[in-house]
C-alpha cells in the first residue's frame, strides 16, 4: 500500500461509517417528526455513503474480500435503521396504546 493509499483508505473507511451513522440518525429523526424532507435528506446521506463505498472499491488497495465486505455492509447499514425502527415500534406498541 502506498503512503497516500494508506491515508485515503483510512479516511474513506471512517467517512463510510460516519455517513452510515448520519443516515441512521436523520432517518430516525425523520420518522419521529414525520418529516418527508428529513427522510429525503437521510436518503441523500445514504447515497453519499454508497458513493464512499464505491470509492473504497474503486480507489483503495484493499483486498477484494474486504471490498466485498464493504459492499455487503452497505446493504446491512441500509436495512438497520428501518428494521430497528419497526422493532422499536413493536416493542413500545402496548405502552403507546396505554
Amino acid at each position: 500500500m502506498s503512503e497516500i493509499g494508506l491515508l485515503q483508505s483510512a479516511l474513506l473507511l471512517g467517512v463510510y461509517v460516519a455517513l452510515a451513522g448520519s443516515y441512521g440518525l436523520v432517518y430516525t429523526i425523520a420518522r419521529i417528526q414525520d418529516a418527508i424532507s428529513l427522510y429525503r435528506l437521510s436518503l441523500v446521506l445514504y447515497g453519499l455513503h454508497g458513493l464512499t463505498a464505491i470509492a473504497i472499491v474503486a480507489w483503495t488497495p484493499l483486498h477484494i474480500g474486504w471490498k466485498g465486505l464493504i459492499v455487503a455492509s452497505s446493504a446491512a447499514f441500509l436495512a438497520i435503521p428501518p428494521i430497528t425502527w419497526r422493532l422499536l415500534q413493536r416493542t413500545h406498541e402496548p405502552e403507546v396504546r396505554g
Binding site: G21, L25, T28, I29, I32, Q33, T84, W85, L88
Partner: peptide, 18 residues
Amino acid sequence: EPLPLLGMVVHAVYDAGT
C-alpha cells in the same frame, strides 16, 4: 462491530424523540 452500534444510535434517538 459498527452494525449494532448504529442500532443503538437509532434506539437512543427514538427514546429521545418519543
